[in-house]
Design a protein around this nucleic acid. Sequence first.
DNA 1: TCCGCCAATCTAACCGTTTCACCTGAGTCG
DNA 2: CGACTCAGGTGAAACGGTTAGATTGGCGGA
Lengths: 338, 338
Amino acid sequence: MATIRDVARASGVSVATVSYVINNGPRSVREETRRLVLAAMEELDYHPNAMARALVNRRVNTLGVLFGRVEPAIVTNQYVTGILEGVMSAAAERGFNVTLFTQRWKDAATSAAPLRDGRCDGVLAIAPPTDNDMIEGLAGLDLPVIVVSAAIAAETGLPFVDVDNAEGTRLAVRHLVELGHRRIAHLTGEESQPSAGERREGFLRGMAEAGLPVPAEFLVTARYNLGAGYEPTLRLLQLPQPPTALVAGNDALALSALDAARDRGISVPEQLSIVGFDDTPAAALVTPPLTTIRQPMARIGAWATRLLGDRIDGVPVAQQAHRASPELVIRATTAPPP
Amino acid sequence: MATIRDVARASGVSVATVSYVINNGPRSVREETRRLVLAAMEELDYHPNAMARALVNRRVNTLGVLFGRVEPAIVTNQYVTGILEGVMSAAAERGFNVTLFTQRWKDAATSAAPLRDGRCDGVLAIAPPTDNDMIEGLAGLDLPVIVVSAAIAAETGLPFVDVDNAEGTRLAVRHLVELGHRRIAHLTGEESQPSAGERREGFLRGMAEAGLPVPAEFLVTARYNLGAGYEPTLRLLQLPQPPTALVAGNDALALSALDAARDRGISVPEQLSIVGFDDTPAAALVTPPLTTIRQPMARIGAWATRLLGDRIDGVPVAQQAHRASPELVIRATTAPPP
DNA sequence: TCCGCCAATCTAACCGTTTCACCTGAGTCG
DNA sequence: CGACTCAGGTGAAACGGTTAGATTGGCGGA
């Protein structure tokens, strides 16, 4: 492998001059000399060593991505890949590469080490969990950090980007109210997910705005997983005054609610309307296609990446909270009440 | 940021000794000294700089991943994320991080540069295309390269891992034959995708083994995209002697075939059986759930990653072709012919 | 007692860049 | 014409590690 010294020797100039040619500065180089150097570089098939440059520049043009959930299967998660898509394109725009950290998070002392060793210029934490010290560990780093999707970041002061969860659920409620629904229930996600609380918040606000009552039994909690909404939905449908519409905490819950309704012989959307949240690809594929709240994942990922790029470049990030607007996607699981 | 010299000074030893402590060798260190050094490291919150180590070790413990398709949206592709999942977990096992190259491939001269600058120890090319010089560019690199999913690699001698496409389609045919089908058509993917040819190959072999004829009009070519199978399927169904079963080149084609059948009022699987290929998540969600050939993507990704790790560690890769076994997943789109 | 050996340690060269301080010669200006 | 500026170029010191080679002191054996 040719080094900068080889190029210098071959073109009869000093290494400094070669470096100036490579970087277009900070000193100017006579055109004739430049050509000489470029020819030598070409001739020797020379490529500057990124590690050496990184060492002196203290900059590697690489963004680190950290996943919050523990499964290694995480990259197949629709939410994560949606975010990642935005991250990739925004990173490409600004000339950053992206390195995925593969090790699971143990604790700040051991897991933060690979982040502070100069391997990347900044870190993007995607959906960090509440039950370990990841957020604190990241906040303690002297690296730029942006958090995606976590109100948890609020306490630590880390800037974050997330969809406006409350607003999304409010949109869902408003849509149902406009269709004429008055008895609307909410399937909340698990408490440990900060988004769950925000979404319920939005549900309550939407109901209050419409002047509709929310019986206690219309607020049920389930896990975010596929299938978790099945039992709760069955119970809701057996109430003496069952709801005519269901706002689910996410698409997975909505899908299992759909299953439950089908199994009870209740037709959707004629007898029961269902709205999801996230607009995962499955939402469009299922029959009937799911009305849901779209979370602009790619936009969120790109936004976070740009913020991170700014921070790396020394541009201060003005505010801490960045909220992307959700969007109502009307498909076929909502209709006027019977 | 503390450096190794700070640690040396703080613990009253030389930098060499500190280095020996960090790396457990290559020289031994007295237990007492080691403790002294470790204490100083802890005290100063010292973390060895990865770039500096990489510079002298010529090893960064990082794998580069290159995507073949051009869209930046690539990471949302189910196939790619499936592979990536395997890559991530296998990389984690062996202590590698993964960097995703974000720039699109232009040509070998410009696009290969970032790969040979020491940023990663080896490269994984996922589904490289046939219509540019990516493969040649990679083959010309003096880096270990493993190709995922590309018979194209064959010519260049690069080792590759892929599902056994022909075998998969053969399984599909055998399944249909066992159900009693005799008139089976094949929706081939686009020619430029090497997998398409292999799958058709397997189809023909399977039909030959069963002693069944394949009329020319039963072999149709479409693009791999969602929706592309719609028109061809309609045409097949309008034949005087229409097929009773359809083997699709991938799930996307199968799904659009399903749509076409539904729109023609032909019930699946009672009047028409359909088999997909890939087992993307959509396959299980659609109604009726799709019988398909599962491609073990995570396994393929992990396999490729281990091969790459071996090559990086200097273990020679014995053979060039590595074929993962496909698996028939029977759901609800196949049944005996009418 | 002397020698050789060995473990533990240190000194310094090196990895491949960038950039600062310095030098030279030509042009500019009063 | 001398003092400046300035563009173009050089040498060498960083950057933060690793490791070969030299050095030291302690110990066992002849």
